[in-house]
């Protein structure tokens, strides 16, 4: 698989890469939503999951979220540490409790339920 750094675990640098996306809140103040997306390289499913997540967050959590992207190909040890089996896996680290959604998040309604994101 390609090692081309399409995804970067450092969320701050994602701003440059994602054109048109609203920049997440600056790192200085901790956003209330901390999401971790575990992917494996740039598989279509991973790309799709990221863009779907991005859309949801931008729409409902604008300015209140941070997406941490973890490429397990580059950091395989994190798979065990975070108990990842399926890819892609979205982990809602914050707010508590931890929630997990697996899949490419193509079903937006279900993704909202899975993330426990209550839309007003």
């Amino acid at each position: 698989m390609s090692k081309k750094p399409t995804f970067n675990p450092d969320p701050l640098r994602q701003q440059k890469m994602e054109d048109g996306a609203v920049a997440p809140a600056p790192a200085a103040e901790e956003p209330s939503w901390h999401l971790r997306l575990f992917v494996a390289g740039q598989s279509p499913k991973s790309l799709l999951a990221y863009s779907n997540l991005k859309k949801i967050c931008d729409q409902y959590l604008s300015g209140k979220y941070r997406i941490e992207l973890v490429d397990l190909i580059k950091e395989p040890h994190l798979a065990q540490a975070h108990q990842i089996v399926a890819v892609p896996t979205l982990v809602r680290q914050l707010p508590e409790p931890i929630k997990r959604v697996i899949g490419d998040l193509s079903n937006r309604e279900r993704a909202l339920v899975g993330m426990d994101l209550h839309v007003a």
């Binding site: 575990f38 494996a40 598989s43 499913k45 799709l48 999951a49 779907n52 397990l72 190909i73 395989p76 040890h77 798979a79 065990q80 990842i84 089996v85 399926a86 890819v87 892609p88 896996t89 931890i98 929630k99 997990r100 959604v101 697996i102 899949g103 490419d104 998040l105 193509s106 079903n107 279900r110 993704a111 339920v113 899975g114």
Partner: peptide, 20 residues
């Protein structure tokens, strides 16, 4: 804890296994 949403695979398991 897990909610399934759309396509996925078990690449995570493969990676863990390969790593181990």
């Amino acid at each position: 804890q897990i909610d399934e949403n759309g396509e996925f695979d078990l690449e995570g398991l493969f990676i863990r296994l390969a790593y181990a």
